[in-house]
Design a protein around this nucleic acid. Sequence first.
DNA 1: TAGATTGTTAATCGATTAACAATC
DNA 2: TAGATTGTTAATCGATTAACAATC
Lengths: 205, 205
Amino acid sequence: MNAEKIPDIIIGRLPVYLRAIQRMADNGIKTTSSQELGEHVGISAAQIRKDISQFGEFGKQGTGYSISYLLDKLKEILKVDRKWDVALVGAGDMGHALARYQGFTNRGFQIVMIFDNSKDKVGQKIDNFTIEDSEKMVERIKSAGIKMAMLTVPAPAAQSVADKLVQAGVRAILNYAPISLNVPNNVKVQYIDPATHLQRMTYYL
Amino acid sequence: MNAEKIPDIIIGRLPVYLRAIQRMADNGIKTTSSQELGEHVGISAAQIRKDISQFGEFGKQGTGYSISYLLDKLKEILKVDRKWDVALVGAGDMGHALARYQGFTNRGFQIVMIFDNSKDKVGQKIDNFTIEDSEKMVERIKSAGIKMAMLTVPAPAAQSVADKLVQAGVRAILNYAPISLNVPNNVKVQYIDPATHLQRMTYYL
DNA sequence: TAGATTGTTAATCGATTAACAATC
DNA sequence: TAGATTGTTAATCGATTAACAATC
């Protein structure tokens, strides 16, 4: 493991490699090469080798990478060799879809709390979860030591909820609200805004 | 308008600028500066000026940018000064959430068809939409001339559905399935995979 | 006018690619 | 061994930043 700072852009590609390697593992494949992996994810073989080699020598000349070994290493690097508790804020349609999404559990995450500020929704159930009152959010997150949250509230509420999440000790926010969030440097935000993503493609049509 | 090729990375930032400018317009603000806009979106003022100036001289020295003018120009550049028809494939929880999402219509998009391959779901309604049979998808999309699609099918089905979308003439796919898609060069794909996005942040925790 | 802010240039910084010795 | 493929270096390419003349 290298002590120098790894660029964000490399960290951003690792989950894509991990996803592809996991899929190969699920298909019973035992080894792969930077070339083959590159074809799967649409990235050059040279870049994949360079990215991976930032963290150690995980391959073997002549034969490539052991899938199970690389899988373990990538999970370890990304710290998804454990399961992170995640709070979900906003129990609208998108919140419901995420609460019921089956794809988190194999990939290092589990939703453990759902909040909403509507008195109608508080107390209702989504599968096994009971929607809790946003008023108790800071306290609940803080005492549970939760570091990650997903934000599916309307845009006008998003910044003030984000502020509360930060106050509660959350360090990583997956933001579904269509607005840029202002957070301290030590807090990470990832944005998912379907309209923004669509707008990144229309230019080329 | 500049004839040279604009880098993808710049095109990718424009929707973020557009979103912020739209918000300022909604708040009744009339002008802004590269500095102010930069603070809102977390990008340096120099970069914003450079990005915008690729497409023309939209600002005024001393006073900055007219919000309404910049709004119009950004929409025009991104081709969201019109409304794009979008097909939605996969009527699971995520498909339902997108079908009911209110955030597309002001931003240049409208879902016009929803497909699923489950015989149970075909014929059911989501708000005003009737879920259609995937078997008719290629024909329906082709005859309607639809160029954009959102993919919310399970990962194992995603590639084959993407192939059909391409065959139907779709040129832009917003892919919610947790898998890298293989498409021709003239087809754009954007990826939304919440687990991948979360995994981009755990490294820093 | 004086102050503010653009658009743009040049310098810096960072990322990607090509190439190949090392070696499995 | 011969063939394949890594890890790494150096070269190239591209993106960001700093600085400032132009000008509103």
